[in-house]
């Protein structure tokens, strides 16, 4: 464990806290992409199948359960619970996620670590996580302006994987047997997708006053 990875996990947890607060206190899922939340639920449920046999630390196992529970709760609330379910707009949030899941599944089959069924599923989840934010970014693009809490949610989510990039660099130079090309590649793509958002987020938050984040 290193500070980058720890801060990355804290940023990830923060993103869950912000989103759960927003949809439970704010009683609205407006501006939130259910498609992205469904993809994250698939990512965590597939990647953390090893919860039952790969016990690397209590910290890891605890957070795996937390991430599966939170992502599932978010999907449940937005899809089934009133009044949130009425604030979800399927016309706006209509990114064809099958075009993300399909290629990631093929990539997981072809490019993975050990050619075992779990490793194929694990690689699939890594590739899918890299592109899972796309429906959310498309939704924000359509709306043009980003609601304040939503902007903090997306920023925390982007920061989590950006901090993981630093964690991988740190581990590469401090551990002589560390190699994880799949997550290095996917994590770089994932963080890259946020660069445009981070630019507009920074512009809107600069100088302290919280002007709304505007995406062109």
């Amino acid at each position: 464990m290193n500070i980058f990875r720890f801060l990355g996990d804290m940023s990830h947890i923060l993103s869950f806290v912000i989103l759960l607060l927003k949809i439970t206190q704010g009683k609205s899922a407006a501006g939130i992409s259910l498609r992205t939340q469904e993809l994250y639920m698939i990512v965590f449920c597939s990647r953390y199948l090893d919860l039952f046999w790969n016990f690397s630390s209590l910290y890891n196992s605890f957070l795996k359960v937390v991430f599966i529970a939170c992502s599932s709760a978010i999907v449940y609330i937005i899809r089934f619970k009133s009044p949130q379910k009425d604030t979800w707009n399927p016309e706006l949030d209509n990114f064809p996620i099958q075009y993300l899941i399909g290629p990631c599944a093929v990539a997981g089959l072809l490019i993975n670590q050990d050619w075992t069924p779990f490793e194929m599923i694990w690689a699939f989840s890594i590739y899918l996580e890299a592109v899972a934010i796309l429906p959310q970014l498309f939704l924000l693009q359509k709306q043009g302006e980003v609601e304040n809490l939503t902007s903090h949610y997306v920023a925390a989510l982007g920061a989590y994987r950006g901090l993981y990039l630093m964690n991988w660099v740190y581990r590469y130079f401090t551990e002589d047997d560390y190699l994880q090309r799949i997550v290095w590649f996917a994590g770089t793509v994932q963080t890259g997708l946020y660069i445009d958002f981070f630019y507009h987020y920074y512009q809107s938050k600069r100088g302290g006053l919280s002007r709304p984040v505007k995406l062109p």
């Binding site: 090893d50 790969n54 694990w122 190699l179 994880q180």
Partner: peptide, 10 residues
């Protein structure tokens, strides 16, 4: 030599 280790990250 570097080798892919078992998944110890989230």
């Amino acid at each position: 030599t570097r080798k892919p280790e078992k998944h110890d990250e989230l």
